[in-house]
């Protein structure tokens, strides 16, 4: 695999963009930070599928495309299916000797939102991973169905106010806990699983490069701070992301072959999770006295998860 150097940011900045501007994502949207970095961290040819969601509708506005690679748009549940199908056909044609350029390195990548990944495309993703296709699935996790106006998904965390689980007089918003997609994908047989965030650009690029050079299905959960639905100023996307990783609301770790768990980022000073929550409109109501127990619950869950990850890392399981 032709890897771009990510030793430091200066070297990485000599890579060439393959994701173009004048897409229609909101100002400050993290989706594009993640996608552009994935495309810049290799020189290999890319075949990318993207299902319906903010990324797809904003980057393929007929008659425009923002993609400088082979790119397939497919229905909401089928990012994994399209990438798996293209990969299977590529292998078959290679075997039959009908490829125009059989020696060109190609990588298969699928992008889906959390709504499509955690909920609606879950079964198809699971099938593609089970079949062992050689592809990387990247979930752009903004913890809601952003493109249709901010409905809750099973990636929405407790206490968030969404249009289908709004906070108000009788409710503090989302009641359920976020689904653990990384554990599910690792158990599903993914060769490599990682959680990444764009503010930790190097950590993210290294995970992308590991996934792209791993033989077998890989799953990456990329935190994508959403200025519109998380309700923060567009300039603060990286600031909010820093609060997320440094409060361990989004711990960064990887799981290799379902068994070897490594924590890939340890904040020097761990921040209280309320600092992260206070910076976003979707959690504003949690700071009313009657919702103090939700803040406590949030911190408790973050602490327990961190404890669990550290125990697994130590035990090498």
């Amino acid at each position: 695999m032709a890897i771009t150097s990510v030793k430091n940011l200066k070297e990485f900045s000599t890579s060439n963009d393959r994701f173009e501007g004048a897409h229609l994502l909101c100002p400050g949207c993290a989706h594009s930070m993640i996608v552009r970095e994935l495309m810049n961290c290799t020189d290999d040819n890319l075949v990318i599928s993207t299902n319906t969601g903010c990324l797809e509708v904003s980057t393929a506005v007929y008659p425009y495309t923002s993609w400088d690679t082979s790119w397939i748009h497919i229905g909401f549940e089928n990012a994994a299916t399209a990438a798996a199908g293209a990969e299977a056909m590529y292998k078959a044609r290679k075997r039959k000797g009908t490829l125009k350029n059989p020696d060109a390195p190609v990588k298969f990548v699928a992008f889906g939102g959390d709504g499509s990944t955690y909920d609606i495309g879950f079964q198809w993703l699971s099938g593609a991973v089970e079949r062992g296709h050689n592809f990387t699935y990247i979930c752009l996790d903004n913890e809601n169905y952003a493109n249709t106006g901010g409905q809750r998904s099973s990636a929405t965390p407790i206490g968030a106010s969404t249009t289908t689980a709004p906070a108000g007089r009788v409710s503090y918003g989302e009641k359920r806990n976020k689904k653990d997609m990384l554990a599910i994908m690792a158990a599903n047989g993914a060769s490599y699983v990682a959680q990444v965030a764009p503010n930790k650009w190097k950590n993210m690029a290294q995970a992308f490069q590991k996934a792209l050079s791993t033989d077998g299905p890989c799953y990456i959960n990329a935190m994508s701070a959403c200025t519109t639905e998380w309700k923060f100023d567009p300039k603060d996307t990286i600031n909010i992301s820093d609060l997320a990783t440094d409060s361990l609301a989004f711990p960064l770790y990887e799981i290799i072959n379902g068994t070897e768990l490594n924590i890939t980022y340890r904040p020097k000073n761990v921040l209280p999770v309320k600092d992260y929550l206070a910076a976003q409109g979707r959690f504003k109501h949690l700071f009313k006295p009657e919702n103090a127990h939700v803040l406590e619950e949030w911190q408790k869950r973050v602490d327990e998860k961190w404890e669990y990850l550290q125990r697994r890392e130590e035990a090498r399981v």
Binding site: L9, K10, F12, S13, D17, F19, E20, G21, A22, H23, L25, P27, G28, C29, A30, H31, S32, M33, R36, E37, P198, N199, W201, T237, I238
Partner: peptide, 16 residues
């Protein structure tokens, strides 16, 4: 020339 602005611009608009 730290390139922070280059890597995080969401609109590929910092030319380096």
């Amino acid at each position: 020339d730290c390139q922070n602005c280059w890597v995080w611009c969401p609109d590929s608009s910092i030319i380096s």
